[in-house]
């Protein structure tokens, strides 16, 4: 069992919503539900987070925010869409500025329906996400190795023989960077 399933840290973002689900997420932290029992911590920093909990739907203005948070999270990471707004747009679906659910912008791993989603359902969704997290964690070393290999290959391609020659010559001239 990877350790990530024992210590999933969460970052929470609330998109276009009525704030109902937002409040329910915070309710999970209260003594009544106490998600810290599972090692879950609500961080405010995508770089520390493992699970991205999104409530509310995507509108034109928060696309970049959602994407940025998602991209800043180090892998393995899981996205949990909480509430029907995050799942499909919900009651806001027909609005002129709404794109729809979170999956129109970033890949979603777990959907938690409900309006508002109950804290029990949210915790259940996060626990479901742990399974996905464990799976992604298993794939991570291979992925990283593949990327490193691809990077090395790309670097080799960049170094065609002539460029290497000019680089070496210019290095002799005492200028390490200029020539290549």
């Amino acid at each position: 069992m990877p350790y990530i399933t024992k210590s999933p840290w969460i970052i929470h973002y609330d998109g276009s919503s009525c704030n109902g689900c937002d409040i329910e997420v915070l309710a999970c932290l209260t003594p009544m539900y106490d998600v810290e029992r599972f090692g879950i911590i609500n961080t405010g920093n995508p770089k520390h987070a493992d699970i991205f909990l999104v409530t509310g739907s995507v509108n034109e203005q928060n696309i970049s925010v959602i994407k940025q948070i998602y991209e800043q999270m180090p892998r393995p990471k899981v996205v949990v869409a909480v509430g029907i707004c995050a799942t499909s747009g919900g009651v806001f679906r027909e609005c002129y500025n709404i794109m729809g659910g979170i999956d129109t912008v970033i890949p979603v791993d777990v959907y938690v329906p409900g309006c508002a989603a109950r804290p029990e359902a949210i915790i259940d969704g996060v626990v479901k996400g742990l399974g996905v997290l464990a799976e992604k964690r298993g794939r991570l070393p291979a992925e990283l190795a593949e990327e490193a290999a691809a990077r090395r290959a790309a670097e080799r391609e960049d170094d065609d023989p002539e460029a290497v020659m000019t680089f070496e010559v210019s290095e002799d001239a005492g200028d390490g960077k200029g020539g290549a």
Partner: peptide
């Protein structure tokens, strides 16, 4: 705070988890 709280070894789980994350 009237909560149950995490397992006693939680800090170790946290650190071991952090060690297995993607290096950024």
């Amino acid at each position: 705070q009237g909560r149950f709280g995490p397992p006693l070894l939680q800090p170790f789980y946290d650190v071991l988890k952090l060690l297995e994350k993607e290096p950024v």
